[in-house]
Design a protein around this nucleic acid. Structure first.
Lengths: 149, 149
DNA sequence: TAGAATTACTTAGCCGGCTAATTAATATCC
DNA sequence: GGATATTAATTAGCCGGCTAAGTAATTCTA
């Protein structure tokens, strides 16, 4: 029997739709602090660990190097990050947050909380925890029981 | 108390990361049939219901009208869709699949199955069902042509 | 050690997205 | 009916993404 897959109605489709919705929510709220969606993710890596190389950022963000090149140029123009020479390797460079970039951490965190609340509005706390656990399991990450910090 | 939200480790962050990963998976596999990621979603709406207006596509895809304009121009150039005049309203138009566009349905469905398998590789069937249920519940908030907000 | 391969990043150009401003057609109101 | 508002779609320009191709520095290798 030839089971024509229904496309819509697959888990991947639902995931894509939820992702899109969440991205719109984040973008809308993030505009209030003057950031474009995507830039927050790069800054988040630097808030976690300052001074990463460009290539390391690409790997952690799961994007290609040219994407990092362009994003850094704009973030640098905005005065949020700066590049410093890497004494160990003249090919690469290290990206450091400016004071202005560091100052955005809490406002952006607040944006994310609001966007998350909007995206997950229809789930109760237990469902949210289940979802969180499944997502972290997909990521191959850990902390399945830890409720944030 | 001074609980500085950790940004990373939130459900929204995990969702964004999983979304990104899945999008990369879809993009990679979708390239085999000559589509860019995003075009599959537009075609999926037409596979579901042919002859939608441009604005209806924008609403269903949760994107802005200019995005639809550009995507349609490219899909039209590729010979996948065609525009037809709307006799009821000369401002708008209706988008119809070509035979070539219709023929992509099953190949794309297969791409999605593969991408989904890759994205959800670490989940067992029961976990996948749970995830599917949660995503569907989230979508229930804004999917059924509701007022959205 | 000189040349070849590899690595790290940039450039150019495209596509999916967005906002702001514009155009054309329809609907509304005086 | 004519002026006005509203709606549907487009254009222009930007940002986040990509691939392909190029450049410069490092490493490998003969």
């Amino acid at each position: 029997m030839i089971r024509t897959p229904s496309i819509r109605g697959t888990t991947g489709f639902a995931l894509a739709k939820v992702c899109k919705s969440h991205r719109v929510n984040v973008a809308t709220i993030l505009a209030e602090v003057g950031l474009h969606v995507g830039q927050d993710m790069l800054l988040a890596e630097l808030w976690e660990q300052d001074g990463l190389r460009g290539g390391e950022l690409a790997v952690r963000l799961n994007v290609e190097p040219p994407t990092v090149t362009k994003m850094l140029r704009r973030l640098q123009t905005c005065g949020l990050v700066e590049r410093r020479q890497n004494p160990d390797d003249a090919r690469s460079f290290r990206v450091h947050l400016t004071d202005k970039g560091r100052a955005l951490r809490d406002p952006v965190a607040h944006c994310w909380q609001r966007a998350e609340e909007k995206t997950l509005a229809s789930l109760n706390p237990k469902e949210r925890q289940t979802l969180h656990g499944l997502l972290t399991k997909i990521r191959g990450d850990f902390a399945p029981g830890s409720t944030g910090e």
